[in-house]
Every structure is written in C-alpha cells, then in structure tokens.
C-alpha cells in the first residue's frame, strides 16, 4: 500500500466506512440515470457524453467494493480510450441528431416490454436469493494491495489466458487496419 494522500490509511483499513449506503445510492442513481440517457438521447454526441458519466459512476461503485485497480482501469480505458474512439468516429462521420422518423409503436412497446420482463426476472431471482440479503463481510486482513494481488494472479494462474488476450488484441489491431484501409481500385 503506497501511502497515498488520496485514500487515507484509515479508510483503507476499515472498508465499511467507504461503503456508506448514501454514497452507494448516489453513485448508483448517477450511473443508472445517465445510462438511461444514453438510450434516450437522440444526438449521438450527447449519448457518448452520458456514457462517460455513467462509467465514472460505475468506477466509483468499483471503488466502494474495494476494487481500486479496476476502478482506475475503468476510468482510463472506458472514460479515456473507448470514449475518445466513439467521439472521434461520431465527429469523423459527422453524424447529426436523428431526424424524427415515424415511430413504429408496436416494435417500441415490444422492446420495452421484453426489457421490463428481463428486469422483473432478474429482480425476482435476486429477491429469492438468500445470500443477497447479507451485508458485505468486513476485511479483517491487512491493507488492501489489490494491484499487486490482481497482478500476481494474472501472471501466475492466468498466464495463458493473458497471453491469449494479447494475441486477440493484436488480431483486433490488424483487423481494424485492414477494415479501415481504402479499397484499391
């Protein structure tokens, strides 16, 4: 644990102080409201910017679960790289807000109904799940050094998947270059 000024030692040692219900609901609400804004907004730029806020809320939730490394990765990769990619493509293609087409009410109602049924099923399963009523156990151990722990696991038990993911990213890079090359005529 680096003696960082951002996370006081006491807060790391006693994770329950971070996981206050008030902050949890604030960030969860932030994430959900802006997640809904992604779907509702007519303008793709507004959708992309709402997605950034939604991901920041999610990063805060990761940190409330003592996953600091993943929270920071979330901000760097999603709010940084992926969002720049989205905005860059939107600007490159010069996409405007969708013109108001005739809405197919039957299809819209069907889509909302299917999503609502899925949500009802999930909440039913969660409400029947006994363990879900328990609070999170306190971490009795020493300080949380999750960068080291995740890294050690990544390079020991999950070494082969890690290398396969490296090959996957390489293939994706080559594929993107190939796809975005102008066709030779």
């Amino acid at each position: 644990m680096l003696g960082s000024p951002f996370f006081p030692q006491s807060a790391i040692r006693n994770p329950q102080s971070i996981m206050s219900p008030f902050l949890f609901w604030i960030f969860a609400l932030l994430m959900l409201v802006f997640g809904a804004a992604v779907v509702v907004n007519r303008n793709p730029v507004a959708s992309a910017l709402s997605l950034v806020v939604s991901f920041l809320g999610l990063a805060a939730l990761f940190m409330s679960l003592d996953a600091y490394f993943l929270g920071i990765i979330q901000v760097l990769v999603y709010a940084g790289a992926v969002m720049v990619l989205f905005l860059f493509i939107i600007m490159l293609l010069d996409l405007r807000a969708e013109t108001r087409r005739r809405i197919n009410w039957l299809a819209t109602a069907g889509g909302i109904a299917v999503a609502l049924v899925l949500l009802m099923q999930i909440s039913f399963v969660v409400s029947r799940f006994q363990l879900a009523r328990q609070t999170f156990p306190a971490l009795p151990g020493s300080t949380i050094d999750d960068v080291r722990n995740v890294g050690a696991l990544l390079f020991s038990n999950y070494n082969l998947p890690f290398q396969i993911v490296g090959v996957l990213v390489l293939v994706a890079t080559i594929g993107v270059v190939l796809l975005s090359r102008r066709e030779p005529r």
């Binding site: 969860a28 994430m31 959900l32 999503a115 609502l116 999930i122 969660v126 879900a132 009523r133 609070t135």
Partner: peptide
C-alpha cells in the same frame, strides 16, 4: 447488501 449491487447491475443490464 449484495442484493442492492445485483439489483443495480440488473437494472443497468436491462437499460
């Protein structure tokens, strides 16, 4: 509780 997180996750998935 764990259920709160799972419910929020389910709502986000449905969105």
């Amino acid at each position: 509780t764990l259920g709160d997180y799972l419910l929020v996750s389910g709502i986000l998935f449905s969105i």
